[in-house]
């Protein structure tokens, strides 16, 4: 899996037609929201759902009729 994925990254990097200015434009305009959503909001949502499940199991443990 290492070789195909490495090759894919190389191909995408090489075929990417953006120059340095394009990369900086992307980092300035789109990247912050996109990465904040994927790496901050989604993990927080995961944690929240996990916490809800945990609390529900705890309540169920105390009262099986819930």
């Amino acid at each position: 899996m290492v070789v195909p994925m490495g090759a894919l990254i190389a191909i995408v990097s090489i075929l990417n037609s953006e120059d340095l200015i394009g990369i900086f434009r992307f980092l300035k305009n789109y990247y912050p929201l996109y990465v904040t959503f994927v790496c901050l909001i989604l993990p927080l949502v995961l944690l929240m759902i996990s916490q809800i499940k945990k609390t529900r199991e705890k309540v169920k443990g105390r009262n099986p009729n819930v």
């Binding site: 980092l27 300035k28 990247y31 912050p32 929201l33 996109y34 990465v35 904040t36 994927v38 790496c39 901050l40 993990p43």
Partner: peptide, 11 residues
Amino acid sequence: LPIISLYSSIF
């Protein structure tokens, strides 16, 4: 915002 996104990559 870019700094937060950069640090979020610790994920």
